[in-house]
Design a protein around this nucleic acid. Structure first.
Length: 583
DNA sequence: TATGCCGCCTC
DNA sequence: ATCGGAA
DNA sequence: TTCCGATGAGGCGGCATA
């Protein structure tokens, strides 16, 4: 298949919203491609070159792709980015720049899908000195061989914004349709995907060996399983109403880890299936010492703790353990403990179909003792009071909240459903870190947001000592489409060419706004920040909000000087630090 | 050698 | 991570 | 309810450049 043909399918998908139609178009695409193309096309549909757990990345983001577009069509990055800012899509920008340059090719001249795939793969392999220039050159070469439509879509691949409206579930439906004409194969395809995490493999196997071949694919210790995810509910009442009697676990704020023991070998995978084995030597050694099984796959949350006091450390500290160098030093300074909460596989037996309570029993019998591995606590709750009791305990210890789980549910890989439900501090309406912020700028939107005028707001709190507004976060969520348009309108009278005199900001928004419009922002936590200027003082870092979202527009009589002050932010930060130490 | 840009990855 | 929109 | 795609803070590491 020519790449231009694939791009035609991409365009069709791009222009349709009905899921059923998307599935039909995809099924048609699969029916038109050769067996050798099924696998690469599946990865390309995922916006990738390989399954998630393979460390193959193109290594070009928006800026380097813009460089390549410029190089291919004789302009500079700045020009490409200006067009990009206006249209909100790098593919559209590339197409436009190509047209301006008069360098459009016809569809028949395009290389094949496999040729392009291999060239992208070659770009991903380049590293070392001079590699950035090399990658840009290679991508520019590809662009010069493509028709406008192909240019559009290929530019979206490295930056991860293919925006076809097609995710993994849609591809699974399409594979089923392509082979059987209906959704009947979705279940076995989905099971195989959940256990192998490789959609390209599933698709290729379906083509080569039929659904019987797919049914033979199963868990392979050493290969990650797609992890189960938790839904959210706002209140304990909602959880009891939905689940009735359930297990309750505390929710720790660290890294999700899926640990595989294969004889004397250990592998550790992240929530998104990245291989993190090298980062956590104490989990590896703990697994070898404590896990009473030849082969096993279990999951838990890894947190850093203070080696002397034993207290658990906030996420911002735990995250320092995500590293490639100086691992032993970091492990000494910030050792980890893994709170194990589930087991999927033991000594050749797939446990995913077993009930939660039974998996829990096996888990308890498999991890011996308590050291770097700890089997996490759980209790049964069947009423709101009991649930609240555990929740309050968790909050008092400075933890994130709780997770409620159905006692009789299997391990539902890949699913975000109501077998597992999380209840977080901020959902329960208590101790909310609500902050009144002043808009000091906004950033142009991309994709759908491009039409709304803004995609994010840059907001600040008030520093009365200096009479300045210091940035504390950007806001990219919590507004409806209407509200995005409205907020841009509200800002219009205050737009300025330069940074307003009373605004202190390291971040440069697309548009500066004189401090006037006040909004109410909800966040989960306050963190120290190297980029936000709120509370920044010489060497000392500023403060920022974790998981910020807009909850309301303040009445227009609310003056910017009435916003939350830096001092209040510092007090809130100290309050939460006290809790964390108490844990 | 030090710093900054950028991308990738966690939440 | 959180959130809103579409079906 | 499910699925998708907008967007957040921030740490590390690779590479380019001063």
């Amino acid at each position: 298949m020519l790449f231009s043909k694939l791009a035609e399918y991409f365009e069709q998908l791009d222009h349709t919203t009905s899921r059923n139609t998307l599935v039909a178009i995809l099924a048609d695409l699969y029916s038109q491609c050769d067996q050798s193309e099924v696998r690469p096309i599946t990865y390309l549909l995922q916006g990738r070159l390989a399954p998630f757990f393979k460390p193959i990345e193109i290594g070009m983001g928006i800026n380097y792709v813009a460089d390549a577009i410029g190089k291919a069509f004789g302009v500079d990055r700045k020009h490409v980015m200006q067009v990009f800012d206006r249209v909100g899509d790098i593919g559209t920008a590339a197409r436009q720049v190509q047209q301006e340059a008069g360098k459009e090719l016809s569809m028949e001249e395009t290389p094949t899908v496999l040729e392009i795939f291999n060239q992208l793969m070659a770009i991903s392999q380049v590293s070392g000195q001079g590699s950035i220039e090399k990658k840009i050159g290679m991508f520019a070469d590809i662009l010069q061989k493509l028709d406008p439509r192909s240019v559009t879509y290929i530019c979206r691949i490295p930056v991860g914004t293919l925006r076809l409206g097609v995710g993994d579930p849609t591809i699974l439906d399409a594979l089923s349709f392509a082979k059987s004409g209906d959704k009947s194969l979705r279940k076995p395809l989905e099971r195989a995907y959940n256990e192998t995490s490789d959609l390209g493999l599933i698709a290729e196997t379906l083509w080569k060996d039929g659904i019987e071949g797919v049914e033979k694919l199963s868990i392979m210790p050493g290969n990650p399983v797609r992890p189960a995810l938790a839904e959210r509910l706002p209140t304990p009442e909602a959880i009891i109403n939905r689940m009735g009697q359930c297990a309750v676990e505390k929710k720790y704020d660290g890294f999700r880890c899926q640990v595989h023991k294969i004889g004397n070998e250990v592998k550790i995978f992240s929530r998104n299936l990245e291989d993190m084995t090298g980062m956590f030597p104490e989990i590896t050694s703990g697994t070898l010492a404590m896990v009473d099984a030849e082969t096993a796959i279990f999951e838990g949350e890894a947190l850093a703790y203070h080696p002397l006091s034993g207290e658990f450390l906030p996420f911002q500290v735990t995250t320092k353990r995500r590293r490639k160098h100086k691992i032993e030093e970091a492990a000494q300074e910030l050792p980890l403990k893994l709170f194990a909460f589930d087991i999927l596989y033991k000594n050749g037996e797939n446990l995913m179909g077993m009930k939660y309570v039974d998996r829990r029993e096996i888990l308890a019998n498999t991890i011996k003792g308590e050291d770097s591995l700890i089997v996490s606590d759980w209790v049964i709750a069947d009423n709101v009071e009991k649930l609240m009791e555990v929740f309050n305990e968790a909050i008092e210890s400075g933890l994130e909240g709780i997770v409620a789980k159905r006692l009789d549910s299997p391990y539902q890989a890949g699913a975000r459903n109501f077998n597992w439900v999380k209840l977080k501090r901020t959902h329960a309406g208590q101790l909310q870190d609500t902050v009144d912020c002043v808009i000091v700028g906004y950033i142009y939107g991309r994709g759908k947001r491009a039409q709304l005028g803004a995609g994010a707001l840059l907001v600040a709190v008030y520093n009365p000592d200096k009479d300045t507004f210091q940035t504390i976060t950007k806001i990219g969520t919590g507004l409806t489409d209407e509200e995005w348009k409205e907020v841009v309108e509200r800002c219009k009278p205050y737009v300025t060419e330069e940074k307003p005199a009373r605004v202190e900001s390291i971040i440069q928004p697309s548009v500066w706004v004189e401090p006037a419009v006040v909004i109410e922002v909800l966040a989960d936590e306050i963190t120290r920040s190297p980029v936000h200027t709120a509370g920044m003082n010489g060497e000392k870092q500023g403060y920022a909000l974790r998981f910020p979202r807009l909850v309301s527009f303040r009445e227009s009589d609310k003056r910017p000087e009435d916003a939350t002050t830096v001092q209040e932010i510092i007090e809130m930060y100290q309050q939460q630090a006290i809790k964390q130490v108490a844990s």
